[in-house]
Design a protein around this nucleic acid. Sequence first.
DNA 1: ACATCGTTCAACCCTGGAGTTGAACGTTAC
DNA 2: GTAACGTTCAACTCCAGGGTTGAACGATGT
Lengths: 124, 124
Amino acid sequence: MSAATEARLSATLVALSDPTRRAILRRLARGEARVTDLAAPFAISLNAVSKHIRTLERVGLIHRKRVGRDHVLSFRATPMDAASAWMDTQREIWTGRLQALDALLQSEDDNALSRTKTKKGDVR
Amino acid sequence: MSAATEARLSATLVALSDPTRRAILRRLARGEARVTDLAAPFAISLNAVSKHIRTLERVGLIHRKRVGRDHVLSFRATPMDAASAWMDTQREIWTGRLQALDALLQSEDDNALSRTKTKKGDVR
DNA sequence: ACATCGTTCAACCCTGGAGTTGAACGTTAC
DNA sequence: GTAACGTTCAACTCCAGGGTTGAACGATGT
């Protein structure tokens, strides 16, 4: 995984980790909206919402279309693909490793695992 | 979605949004390890790693097993399910809406969408 | 042209999180 | 028992990020 990809993944996850931003995305998944529309349900200022929008826009989770004096925002799912993919990978590696363990050793389990402890020479 | 679920999702995404923590998980997906083992590849202090571990543990992404004076950590994928599920939901809502739009209206698009704008009573 | 609306920019507070260092705690090994 | 190891706790610094307010900017509509 390239450093750029890593950074983009980080940014996407950070963007998704805020409840307000997730609410914004949830709203946008149901249809396009202007900044003011998005701000309405929240008890925070328009400026705060505008900031959230910019961070979401920066990672490509929303797209902005200027229509007259309105900024119409729409949802873009693609950046979430990388996040999903990352999680799937971890899951697969883990379950794959578990199955391998199950197949090979059963009672030696604890013993083998404690080998993990080695700091330098260990190959496992 | 309950408030508790929301909070857990937030915590999980926050936990995943840090590159160091993701690296720790990546390492753990390949096998159990002690805190010291996890710290080795990083240029940060043991204490810093210990903190990361605690945040990961708090959201259930890793499990701790005390073996003698070692703390053996293992990967737990389940909290990521909620995160994946959330993203999938957004994707589905969005694509579903797109298809519905395509089917029903084409030219009336802008008009219908601008109705979204309503703040209180206003119908435009 | 002008007032208005929607959005952004700039400066600022404040909280929280990531990092550090130093000490304490528990377990193990001798 | 005691020394050594692994981990955690506590107190502190530093900085990024979410929030605010107030003003500026741009396009619209009349």
